[in-house]
C-alpha cells in the first residue's frame, strides 16, 4: 500500500495499478482460505476459523484503511477500503466487517481513538455497532460492542440471546442498555456514511460472485442435450445481472472518492439492489439445487438479502438521495 512512483500519473476515474493489485491479492488470499467452511462454522458460533481469517485480513491492511495513521492505521482511505470490501463480499467473509469500519469512524475523538482504534486497525479486536434497541451483527463475537443512544456512543455491557438472521452467518443480538459513555456527541453521519459505503462494496462483491458462479453452472448444466446457458431466456437474465452490477460499480467507487451522503446512499441502494436481483437470478437459474442450504450458493444468496436492508433500507437511501439533491 505504498504510493505509486512518479512515473505513474494518477488515473482519473480509474483505480490505479496498485489498487488493482491489492484487490487481486485479497481475492487470492480469500480464495485459498476456503471461506465456505469458515462461514458454516461461524454460523454455528464456532469462531476459530473466522478469527484466523480476520487476522489475515487485518494483516493485509484492510481495517487499517479506516483508521488514521496516528492510531496505527493507514487511512482514512475509503477508495482502497471499498476495493477491499468488494473482495470480502466476493468471498462472503463472515464477521462484523462493516461494523468494525463504522466503529472506527465513530471513535475518532482523541481519548476513545487512542484507547480503541489501534486494536481495531490491527485486527486484535472486532467491533459491532447498533442504535440502542436495534439488532447488532455478531454481538457474541465482537469484544467491542457499541450502542448509540440519546446520550451518545456507549460501550454496551453485554448482549442478549442470538436471533438467527436469514443469512445464518450474521448473528443478530440486542445490546444491553447502559454502559460507559464513550463519546457524548458522536459523528453519527460519518459513521453511517462509512457503514453504507462498506456495505455497498460488500454487496457488489456478493453480486459479482453470484454472477460468476451462475455463469459457470449454466455452462455445465445440460438439458435437452445442450448447456442451459445456450438458451436466450437464460442468457438475458444473466446479461441483465451483469448490466446492473456494472452500473453499480462506478457508483460505489465514485462514492468512495467523494464520501458525500448522497453518493454513498446512491451507491448503497444500487449495489444492494443489483446484488439482490443477481441473487434472484442465481437462485432461479440453479433450479432446485440452489434452493438448498447444503449447496454453497446459499451462503451468498442469503447475504444479498440481508445486506439490502443493513445500514439503510432502499427507501431510506432513496430518501437521502432526494433530500440531498440540489
Amino acid at each position: 500500500m505504498t504510493s505509486p512512483g512518479p512515473a505513474a500519473p494518477p488515473p482519473r476515474f480509474l483505480l490505479d495499478a496498485e489498487q488493482r493489485a491489492f484487490a487481486r491479492s485479497l481475492d487470492a488470499m480469500l480464495g485459498a482460505a476456503g471461506t465456505p467452511a469458515v462461514i458454516r462454522d461461524w454460523s454455528r458460533g464456532e469462531r476459530a476459523g473466522g478469527l484466523a481469517l480476520w487476522s489475515r485480513i487485518a494483516e493485509a491492511g484492510v481495517f487499517a484503511l479506516a483508521v488514521p495513521e496516528a492510531y496505527e492505521g493507514l487511512g482514512p482511505r475509503p477508495v482502497d477500503l471499498a476495493v477491499a470490501f468488494v473482495e470480502l463480499g466476493r468471498h462472503a467473509v463472515p464477521g462484523p466487517l462493516v461494523e468494525t469500519v463504522a466503529a472506527a469512524a465513530l471513535l475518532l475523538e482523541p481519548g476513545p481513538a487512542e484507547r480503541f482504534l489501534p486494536a481495531l486497525a490491527t485486527g486484535r479486536s472486532m467491533a459491532t455497532l447498533a442504535a440502542a434497541g436495534s439488532y447488532a451483527v455478531d454481538g457474541d463475537a465482537a469484544e467491542l460492542r457499541l450502542a448509540v443512544d440519546a446520550d451518545g456512543l456507549r460501550l454496551a455491557p453485554g448482549h442478549g440471546p442470538v436471533r438467527p438472521s436469514l443469512d445464518p452467518a450474521r448473528r443478530l443480538t440486542r445490546l444491553l442498555p447502559g454502559g460507559e459513555l464513550l463519546v457524548p456527541d458522536p459523528p453519527v453521519d460519518r459513521g453511517l456514511r462509512w457503514a453504507r459505503l462498506a456495505t455497498a462494496a460488500q454487496a457488489l462483491g456478493v453480486g459479482l460472485a453470484l454472477l460468476e458462479r451462475t455463469v459457470a453452472y449454466v455452462g455445465r448444466r445440460v438439458q435437452f442435450g445442450v448447456p442451459v446457458g445456450s438458451f436466450q431466456a437464460v442468457k438475458h437474465r444473466l446479461a441483465d445481472a451483469r448490466i446492473a452490477l456494472e452500473f453499480a460499480r462506478p457508483l460505489v467507487l465514485g462514492a468512495a472518492v467523494t464520501m458525500s451522503a448522497v453518493d454513498v446512499a446512491a451507491a448503497k441502494v444500487s449495489a444492494c439492489e443489483a446484488a439482490y436481483a443477481t441473487a434472484r437470478t442465481a437462485l432461479h437459474l440453479h433450479g432446485a439445487i440452489g434452493y438448498t442450504a447444503e449447496y454453497d450458493l446459499s451462503l451468498w444468496l442469503t447475504k444479498a438479502r440481508a445486506l439490502r436492508t443493513a445500514w439503510g433500507t432502499p427507501q431510506e437511501c432513496r430518501a437521502e438521495v432526494l433530500r440531498g439533491h440540489a
Partner: peptide, 11 residues
Amino acid sequence: VAEQLLGLPRG
C-alpha cells in the same frame, strides 16, 4: 453481453 462478456455458449 452474455456471449462475449460472460462467455456463455453461442446458441
